[in-house]
Amino acid sequence: MIEQLLQPINQFLLCQTPVAWVDEAKKSENLPVVLLDHLVCELKAAQSAMYLIRKYAVDKDSGDALLAWLKPFEDFTYRKQGDWKALADHEKLTKSMIPKSGAPYSQDLIDKMVLLIKEELHHFYQVLEIMEEYGIAYESVGSSRYARGMLRHVRTYEPAALIDKLICGAYIEARSCERFAVLAPHVDKRLNDFYVSL
């Protein structure tokens, strides 16, 4: 069944994750790095969606309010401030924002990106819970060159820049999905179930 679900993802990606990556990622001693990287990637995905809303869909005041809303997650992740358990009670993000006038896709972008932000931060919190269960303390990890390398190829004029950013996001999400699938058979049931759900 999982192969059937992955078929369109693999067709989209055109190449598989190297076996050498899987061999390193499945080592039990590398589990903290895998989970920490996963955690940060979930936040970065939420930040990317937030950036798209702020740049393309809402006015400056709404954009500033969105930044303030995301700040506790960023404070925890980048500055080690706050209690991760308190993030579960953080006020929920809603779609009730005033779209920027003159942008024909503002409301559509808000609707889709708010759902994406909620999903990514839900996964962020799930990874934190798993880290707690496994006794893995949070610590900073270096950023990956992967996304930054892709984004260097984004065109600089609109609407091509927005289209390219959305395509880059699609590739990053598809690669993550593919990697969770190839890693799932090599981990315990708790992580396997989580990775398969993603």
Rank of each mutant, 00 (worst) to 15 (best):
M1A: 14
M1P: 13
M1Y: 14
Q4T: 12
Q4R: 10
Q4C: 07
L5E: 12
P8E: 06
P8V: 03
I9H: 02
I9N: 00
Q11Y: 08
F12G: 07
F12W: 10
L13G: 01
L13W: 03
L13V: 03
L14Y: 13
P18T: 09
P18D: 12
P18G: 07
V19D: 15
V22W: 04
V22F: 05
V22K: 08
V22P: 00
E24N: 13
K26M: 06
K26N: 03
S28V: 14
S28D: 13
L31A: 05
L31E: 04
L31I: 09
P32A: 03
L35T: 03
L36M: 04
D37W: 09
H38A: 14
V40Y: 07
C41S: 12
C41F: 06
E42I: 02
L43V: 06
K44W: 06
K44Y: 08
A45V: 06
A45N: 07
A45E: 05
A45T: 06
A46C: 04
A49G: 01
A49I: 02
M50L: 15
Y51K: 13
R54K: 14
K55V: 06
Y56H: 00
Y56C: 01
A57C: 08
D59I: 02
D59G: 08
K60F: 13
D61H: 11
S62C: 11
G63V: 04
D64S: 12
D64N: 12
L66Q: 02
L67Y: 07
W69H: 06
P72H: 05
P72N: 05
D75F: 04
F76C: 04
T77I: 05
Y78W: 12
K80N: 15
K80T: 14
D83H: 09
K85M: 09
A86W: 01
L87Q: 01
L87F: 00
